[in-house]
Computed example of a mutant assay.
Amino acid sequence: MSILEITDILGIVAFALSGYWVAAKERFDLLGAFILSFLTALGGGVLRDILVDRTPYAFSHSLPSLLVISVVLISYLFHLKKYLHFQNRTLFIISDAIGLVSFAITGAMVATQADFNFFGVILVALITAVGGGVLRDMLLNQVPLILKSDFYGSVAIITGGLVYGADKMQFMNTLSVLSIFIFSFLLRMIAYYRRWNLPEA
């Protein structure tokens, strides 16, 4: 299994879990939880594949859908909702950060394989990372997180830039991807808990 496939799987599972968290918080029924988890976990990847002109991975392979279904069913059957303290967003923030960084990496890697330039790589990284979350927030009639706070999209852009740089220096390997993942994940967590925000317009 390639690094790209591993990070993609990690992102799908993490975003499916964050989608279920939001569905439980909003008291959605099981179908609503499935829909929200599917959108959150697979939306960004579908947009990524459309941008690089290839058949969406989620539509041509069964693994992404099986992962989302498994996450939702396990969360439901094991009554994960009981452990989701809605005033304590730690579980949501961690799973969302893992999904954000994983998908930013996969988006950037797919873009570099398609020979996109620097701006193309960071744009695809951003869209892959936040696309599912934007669809989730729109479905809930909320302003997408990327537009208002938490240094959220900035982490995806930085991650895409790091992947582009590593690729140009021919330093893309398991160690470099893991290093970028850890750095970007810690950056997201620090930004959240220290309430880093870009200046308002």
Rank of each mutant, 00 (worst) to 15 (best):
I105Y: 10
L175K: 09
R54Q: 15
V13R: 01
H79T: 10
A33C: 04
V13K: 02
G19V: 13
N173Q: 04
A191W: 00
F34E: 10
L162S: 06
P56S: 08
L36Q: 15
I35K: 08
D29Q: 11
D137F: 03
Q142N: 12
I158H: 03
F92D: 08
V72R: 12
F181Q: 10
F78M: 10
Y76S: 09
V71N: 04
I50N: 02
M172H: 13
Q170H: 15
L51W: 03
D29A: 05
S70K: 02
D29N: 13
L162W: 02
L10R: 09
L145N: 07
I93D: 06
T174M: 12
M1G: 12
L147D: 00
L126K: 07
V124H: 06
T90E: 14
W196A: 10
R195Y: 10
L175H: 13
D96V: 06
G153V: 00
I74H: 01
W21R: 00
F103H: 04
S18V: 08
G43T: 07
V72Y: 03
F119G: 12
A14P: 05
T55C: 02
A114Y: 11
L123C: 09
G45V: 00
I157D: 11
M109C: 09
D49M: 02
L145E: 01
L175S: 11
G45M: 01
S184Q: 06
L186R: 04
D115A: 11
F183M: 15
L187Q: 09
F183A: 13
H61R: 15
A16F: 06
A41K: 00
L42F: 02
S95V: 02
L178C: 07
R195T: 09
L73F: 15
G107S: 14
R136F: 02
R195K: 15
A14H: 04
Y152T: 00
I74V: 15
R195E: 14
V130K: 02
T128W: 05
F116E: 07
L140D: 09
L198E: 06
P199W: 05
A166M: 10
D29W: 01
S70C: 09
R195D: 14
P64S: 06
I9P: 11
I157A: 11
Q170R: 12
P56N: 11
R136K: 08
G133A: 05
I6C: 11
Y57C: 00
G131E: 05
A201E: 08
F28P: 04
D96I: 03
K82R: 13
A114C: 08
L51S: 11
G160A: 07
L17P: 00
S60N: 07
I105W: 04
L175Q: 15
S154Q: 04
I35W: 13
Y20M: 05
F28A: 11
V71D: 10
V110S: 01
L30Y: 08
Y193E: 01
D49P: 03
T106H: 10
I3E: 13
D115Y: 14
